[in-house]
């Protein structure tokens, strides 16, 4: 039986079948290689990969709390620097840990300039605790704390622009990517790791359970998000937009329809006002990052 010696995130973890974050973990560790110390936050990925004594990780890995991965990583980096060691320090944390509760520690880490790559796997809600809203939850998504109802169409706030916040901290490399573009993801991880200073990567990681789609569609969901313009893969190098993945954009409807978290926008009949608001978000993204190959008709 193969022991997957070149893999640093291994079989036997307890994620749902087709889990986007599990795929992200595999791709990130594969790109980062064996000389990597991983720092994790409490959340789905930590829970599905490390019930004692069955860890799925094969490089050194540490978890402390939900909101302190950036600070723990700062200490790890200072410690190994002091000892003259050369491992790379990589945080892999959820969107709740990153956008919401951990932002103090993240701001500190980026401001101090630690040589750490911070990767957020963005499944757009607190999945571990049962699909509650986070600052990364998209507009109008129904979650257990922003349920769609007679008076509500779900989460009423747009996704927070964390990459922009970290660009403002002077980060030399900030990028977004998706599990649906595995090669892009791995290239960006390698680039971030080899860029001195604090770098940030946000990985779109569709969650079948939380978003309400079949686990075999995880890649498909990521691709649909990219093709709608609701997710954009881009790179900001030294504060300048260096690259954005261009797409032949399609209306947002198909992406929304494919997920239970947006079901209320189509039942009993399509809520065209709300869908138009979401389309406007995609249009704004497209313009901001210049991703359109051909404008939508």
């Amino acid at each position: 039986m193969s022991e997957n010696t070149c893999e640093f995130f291994d079989s036997g973890h307890r994620a749902c079948g087709g889990c986007g974050p599990a795929l992200a973990a595999k791709l990130i560790t594969r790109a980062a290689g064996e000389d990597t110390i991983i720092v994790a936050s409490t959340g789905c990925m930590e829970v599905f990969s490390t019930p004692y004594p069955e860890t799925a990780w094969k490089t050194p890995w540490i978890h402390s709390l939900f909101q302190n991965a950036a600070a723990v990583a700062s200490g790890v980096e200072a410690s190994i620097k002091r000892q003259g060691r050369s491992e790379k320090v990589v945080v892999i944390a959820g969107d709740g840990a990153t956008f919401d509760i951990g932002i103090l520690c993240i701001s500190g880490m980026f401001e101090r300039g630690h040589d750490v790559t911070y990767i957020c796997y963005d499944n757009e809600a607190y999945m571990n605790t049962g699909i509650q809203r986070s600052g990364a939850t998209p507009f109008d998504a129904s979650t257990t704390t922003t349920p769609a109802g007679k008076l509500s169409t779900g989460n009423q706030r747009p996704k927070k622009d964390i990459p922009a916040i970290l660009v403002a901290h002077g980060s030399p490399y900030v990028a977004t990517t998706s599990v649906a573009t595995p090669k892009d993801l791995m290239d960006k991880v390698k680039r971030a790791i080899n860029t001195p200073g604090p770098c940030y990567i946000q990985v779109h990681a569709p969650c079948c359970t939380g978003w309400g789609f079949d686990g075999c569609k995880t890649m498909e969901m990521g691709k649909m998000a990219l093709n709608s313009g609701l997710w954009v893969n881009y790179e900001i190098v030294d504060g300048e937009l260096a690259k954005a993945r261009k797409v032949k954009r399609v209306p947002v409807d198909d992406y929304l329809k494919a997920q239970k978290r947006f079901r209320h926008l189509f039942k009993p009949e399509p809520n065209s006002d709300e869908i138009a608001k979401i389309q406007a978000i995609a249009d704004k993204n497209a313009e901001k990052y210049g991703i359109d190959i051909k404008p939508v008709k």
Binding site: E34, E46, V47, T50, P51, Y52, P53, T55, W57, K58, T59, P60, W61, I62, H63, S64
Partner: peptide
Amino acid sequence: PMSFGMYA
């Protein structure tokens, strides 16, 4: 390599 701070 070891995993630190696993959950129990």
